[in-house]
């Protein structure tokens, strides 16, 4: 069974933020939330690198371990999803997540934060595939349409890879061998407890 993963090739990311924009538009992500973000390290200095990051759909997901209402579930192709009808907006998953993926639509000193929102790997949620209800709550379900996450599909430099973990690791390995360098599959050790062998 294919195991879905994300891999950002930091040697290729040019910080164009197309992935961020595509995601926001595709899923009509609530105001103030970005399911994907581009982070730049050593900005303006030699060795500057940018990485596109979102929920990595972790093996043994820390968010699921802490959620008091157990609203997370992992699909057979290892996409970590959650049920907004159960979420109480407690914020625990935000603190547990090593990537800062969970976000909330509202802020307030006393009011609720609203239901947690995060990357769904373009796989919707616990509503029927591609129903209006699913779209409203979680966004579109490209995986059920036989496609991959839009961020990766429209990456201009093909820095962001998505799909079967084995295949994208092979693609990354080929790139590193061809150009003779690579800065590693960022976040893989934390999320998947392994790194692609180069």
């Amino acid at each position: 069974m294919a195991r879905m993963k994300f891999l950002c090739d930091a040697e290729r990311c040019i910080e164009c933020n197309a992935c961020v924009t595509a995601c926001k538009n595709e899923h009509q992500v609530p105001w103030g939330i970005n399911r994907r973000r581009v982070v730049t390290l050593n900005d303006g200095r030699p060795g500057e690198r940018s990485i596109s990051m979102a929920c990595m759909h972790c093996t043994d997901a820390p968010c699921a371990a802490v959620c008091p209402v157990a609203c997370f579930y992992t699909t057979a192709d290892h996409v970590v999803l959650h049920d907004k009808d159960l979420c109480i907006g407690c914020g625990y998953c935000f603190y547990a997540c090593p990537f800062g993926a969970p976000q909330y639509p509202r802020v307030g000193n006393f009011g609720g934060r609203g239901k947690m929102d995060k990357c769904t790997y373009c796989a919707g949620g616990p509503q029927q595939d591609n129903s209006h209800a699913e779209y409203l709550q979680y966004g579109s379900n490209r995986l059920a349409e036989g496609k991959l996450p839009l961020c990766a599909e429209m990456c201009s430099t093909k820095a962001l890879l998505a799909g079967d973990g084995e295949i994208i690791a092979t693609i990354y390995r080929e790139r590193v061998q061809q150009r003779g360098y690579g800065s590693g599959a960022w976040g893989w050790r934390t999320a998947y407890k392994e790194v692609p062998q180069v």
């Binding site: 609530p30 699909t75 996409v79 029927q128 209006h132 209800a133 409203l136 709550q137 799909g163 079967d164």
Partner: peptide
């Protein structure tokens, strides 16, 4: 804006088995 939840009448919840079924092809 996008809603956190949908009206009960519009909900189309999947069964426990449907939720975790593989979607990738």
């Amino acid at each position: 804006q996008r809603s956190d939840s949908v009206p009960a009448g519009q909900a189309r919840k999947e069964s426990a088995a449907e939720r975790v079924a593989a979607r990738y092809r």
